[in-house]
């Protein structure tokens, strides 16, 4: 399997900050519009991280105008121009899918105590 690791190792980014499920993150994502490339902001709670190595992905959920929006990003995608952790969350689960059924105040994640 080392050869496969070697192939994916060249693709991986190591400069990304550490973040976990429950954290609120601010992403800048490259968007291609015709010939233009611009950055789009996406801010929300990380509700899942899955996979390993070069294929790892994470899901960010936000509520936009009352409608839940979730986007899945490959962790090592070159289209992620920046990833900032805004708030660390205190959670007891690896996947926060229960947030999908909650609204308003109930759909909050407690901040992690330092």
């Amino acid at each position: 399997m080392d050869i496969l690791d070697q192939v994916s190792a060249g693709q991986q980014r190591d400069e990304l900050p550490e973040f976990n499920v429950g954290d609120t993150v601010d992403l800048q994502v490259k968007v291609r519009e015709g010939n233009n490339i611009r950055n789009q902001k996406f801010q929300g709670i990380v509700i899942q991280r899955r996979g390993s190595g070069g294929g790892e992905t994470f899901t960010v959920r936000k509520v936009s105008q009352g409608i839940g929006v979730e986007r899945v990003f490959p962790l090592h995608s070159p289209n992620l121009t920046s990833l900032k952790v805004i708030r660390r969350g205190q959670v007891k689960r690896a996947k926060l899918f229960y947030l999908r059924d909650l609204k308003g105040k109930a759909a909050k994640v407690k901040e992690k105590k330092k």
């Binding site: 399997m1 050869i3 496969l4 192939v7 994916s8 693709q11 070069g54 294929g55 995608s77």
Partner: peptide, 8 residues
């Protein structure tokens, strides 16, 4: 064949 992987 070594296996499958993915790249960007």
């Amino acid at each position: 064949k070594i296996g499958m992987s993915q790249i960007f």
